[in-house]
Simulated scan of single mutants.
Amino acid sequence: MRTSFSKGLGILTLSLLVLVGCQEAEPQEGVAEGHMDTSSSALHDHNSSNDHQVAEDVDVQGVADHYHTGDIVKLTAVFEEESESDHWHWYIRDNQDAEWNLITEQKGSSFKGEANRNGQQIKAVLYNDEHEAYVQSVPIEIVIDDHDSHSHHPHDEQIYNGYFEDSQVKDRELSDWEGDWQSVYPYLKDGTLDEVFTYKSEHNGDRTAEEYKQYYAQGYETDVDRIIIEEDTVTFLKSDKELTGEYAYDGYEILTYEAGNRGVRYIFKLAEDSDELPQFIQFSDHNIYPTDAGHYHLYWGNDREALLDEVENWPTYYPKDMDGASIVHEMIAH
Rank of each mutant, 00 (worst) to 15 (best):
S15T: 13
I11D: 10
K213T: 11
I227D: 03
Q28T: 15
D45C: 05
E330N: 07
V224P: 07
Y163F: 15
E132V: 10
N116T: 10
V58I: 15
L193S: 02
G301A: 05
V328N: 02
V18I: 11
F197G: 08
W177S: 03
I144Q: 03
N116E: 09
V18Y: 15
G263L: 09
G301Y: 05
K189G: 01
D37P: 00
E210I: 10
G108I: 03
I332D: 05
Y249Q: 07
H147N: 12
I227K: 09
S4E: 10
W181D: 00
L9H: 14
S15P: 07
S48M: 12
N204F: 06
V31S: 02
A217P: 04
F236T: 01
Q136Y: 01
S49N: 12
E114A: 06
V135Q: 04
D240W: 00
E141G: 07
V78A: 09
A333R: 14
E221W: 10
G205F: 09
E258T: 15
I327L: 01
T233R: 09
I144N: 05
P315A: 03
D323I: 00
H35P: 00
V138D: 13
E246K: 15
W88H: 02
S326F: 00
E82G: 15
S201I: 05
H131W: 15
Y299P: 00
H35C: 08
E312M: 06
E26W: 05
S284T: 13
D166C: 11
G294D: 08
E330F: 04
P319E: 01
L19D: 14
S201R: 13
Y67F: 07
A42I: 09
F197I: 06
A55K: 14
F268G: 02
T13Y: 09
H286Q: 01
K200V: 00
D180V: 11
K123E: 06
E82L: 15
H150K: 12
F197Q: 05
V264L: 10
D285G: 02
P278G: 14
Y127H: 12
N161G: 04
G260S: 13
T76D: 03
E80Y: 14
D94L: 04
D273P: 08
N47P: 00
G10R: 04
I142D: 11
R304W: 13
I144W: 11
E231G: 01
S39H: 05
Q158N: 12
Y127V: 02
V143P: 09
S39D: 08
L308W: 09
Q61T: 10
K238F: 00
T291L: 02
Q279V: 12
L19V: 13
W300L: 01
Q120K: 08
D232G: 06
T222S: 13
E272A: 14
A124W: 06
S239C: 04
D303A: 14
V60W: 09
N204T: 08
I227Q: 06
E114I: 11
S109G: 01
P186C: 05
W300R: 08
Y318T: 07
Y212H: 10
E242Y: 02
